[in-house]
Design a protein around this nucleic acid. Structure first.
Lengths: 327, 327
DNA sequence: CCATTTATACTCTCCGTGAGCATAAGATGG
DNA sequence: CCATCTTATGCTCACGGAGAGTATAAATGG
């Protein structure tokens, strides 16, 4: 076996262009979408006046990608990194604001924690992710800007195509992404929506990267392609909370079922049927009562819960389900 | 806005260690898990005597990661790359067979195509993925090796832990991954199973990377961490066929429903309830009749189908469902 | 005592899904 | 022509999950 492998390895090296030349050396940035939920809002950790995600180059000293990421996040924000999962690796040129940039890839991760006491001296801060994606919060109904600004401009864009078939395809795509034309809003399509808006040049980034000067949408932009990475994280997390018990990582030690529900709603950007939510949580045996009641409540006091120990072990396999209501 | 961004950018550069030094330059390999289904088997494209996946370094000339990948795959195998999606980015040292290796990351992709006429002169060939993962094919029932070899050795491993709690946790993990102790086999856990076997040192790779000399399992190994990447691809594809219509990419222009079913079964490594399968396929309007019948059939002749045009456009959003039977 | 707010318990209905039965439409061999 | 084999196709049934609504309990502040 060992011989075979050696064989194969040397074969590989014999392939003329297979070996990387110094020219092909690149730098890889590690980027973190670090999420917490506080006061009913999904927050992300930002640096540089809330315009960038924690990030830094993957260095020789780092033993692994994750270790490197942890090092950077802790250095820049003082916040420890808990649960982490890889998101995506980006490398398209032209998304950095500089079209002639050399190869630089971004390996992005999603991290989940609890917001803790801020650190002084750093420029790190938590910001609601809806500051960057105001059209993504549907908890109080569809945001006005959707119908008033986004939809008309998408319509213009669709109509601007010459080919009628292309017009149709464009509108179709817009309608699916944004739940127009009577279609349902799908909170998991956050990335598709962002990409569409970028293409249609409704975002400051579009203008930065590709020129043009159309008025852009409300919603904060970020450095390089960080807002795209954030959108990727949001989409991933919204999908994941539905089939894997990851909300845990975002909750305090003890919590009421309503608090848990509010966290889920904050992430999903839409409301949940309360009774069904509780039914699901209970029948999946994800939580157990602590025996105490929540203090300082209005209305009937709520039991406090904690997550069952076993759940963490099963995380890789067990599913969670969430009753996202339609209305 | 532009000013703000400049601000932020220079801020970033002022952070002392933020800038990458030449030392931090790395090389990135692009690796493809290129899948086709032929003769009832899921095949992957391999090179180097079926011991490596098509791959090569991301070079300065490549305009994007995907373009680079396409270039390498076509150069090495002569086979064009169709549908492609990113899998994962690996970078752990110690998985390459050389513990002192410098930083080298692998950005892996899953590609789907149809097997076409082989090219001469290359070392490229299609191999069934079950050559590498014989324990993953459950179409004729659970493979013998599972009960006869894997299960006892996992039991030994669990018992080898000192702490009784750890023993339990180990066995639990093994049982979940492999569907032991009356649990159900879950075909999507291909990666977890591979990782477990690697940890337990039942694979040639384990021995290569970490020493030891226990007898290893049947099943072909690969160069570096390519078998792990393959496992990642299998797991991803098995999960994806259930909620997204990607089987298309693997089918010929026209096909019978049974052929479609056989392809799905080949990928999933388990059987499907025929009538329910057809019901699902039809009610989702993924296919349409061509009007012709399949030639050269045994038994009652089957209608030929093709995929509906629209489906490709909707691929990003529409779901597919598959009735994987339990028995 | 009443209005308000939240917690909880049930119920009802619809539909997706697993599973099995039955029948149709060809081929083949006696 | 019939029996049999093989695959295609149609239909029914039962169970369980999920969405949605109703009703009741337990606290607080006027």
């Amino acid at each position: 076996m060992t011989e075979n492998k050696k064989d194969a390895m040397s074969d590989v090296n014999e392939r003329p262009q297979q070996t990387a030349t110094p020219l092909d050396a690149i730098t890889a940035d590690l980027v973190a979408v670090l999420v917490a939920v506080t006061d009913g809002y999904p927050k992300i950790m930002t640096i540089d006046h809330a315009q960038a995600l924690p990030s830094g180059p993957f260095q020789f000293a780092h033993r692994s990608l994750q270790m490197g990421l942890r090092a950077w996040v802790e250095a820049q924000t003082g916040h420890p990194l808990g649960y982490v999962e890889q998101l995506y690796t980006f490398a398209d040129r032209g998304r950095t604001g500089d079209p002639d940039a050399p190869h630089r890839i971004s390996i992005s991760y999603l991290g989940l924690t609890r917001e803790e006491g801020g650190r002084e001296g750093t420029d790190a801060q938590w910001s609601s992710w809806y500051d960057y994606f105001p059209w993504e919060d549907h908890r109080d109904g569809s945001p006005d800007m959707l119908a008033k600004i986004i939809m008309p401009r998408l319509k213009d864009w669709a109509r601007a195509a010459e080919d009628p078939a292309l017009q149709k395809a464009r509108w179709r795509r817009a309608a699916i992404s944004f739940g127009l034309d009577g279609r349902e809003w799908n909170e998991e399509l956050a990335l598709q929506r962002y990409e569409l808006l970028y293409e249609v040049a409704l975002l400051p980034e579009s203008v930065r990267d590709k020129g043009g000067s159309e008025p852009t949408l409300p919603g904060r932009a970020m450095v390089a392609d960080h807002r795209r990475i954030l959108a990727t994280g949001i989409a991933r997390l919204r999908a994941k909370i539905k089939y894997r018990p990851v909300v845990f990582e975002l909750m305090p030690e003890q919590f009421t079922l309503l608090e848990l529900q509010r966290s889920v709603e904050a992430l999903a950007g839409r409301l949940v049927h309360k009774q069904n939510f509780r039914r699901l949580i209970e029948q999946q045996e994800l939580v157990e009562e602590t025996g105490t009641m929540a203090p300082d409540t209005i209305g009937r006091p709520a039991k406090l819960f904690r997550f069952r120990k076993g759940v963490l072990a099963e995380r890789a396999v067990v599913g969670t389900k969430l009753p996202l209501s339609r209305s």
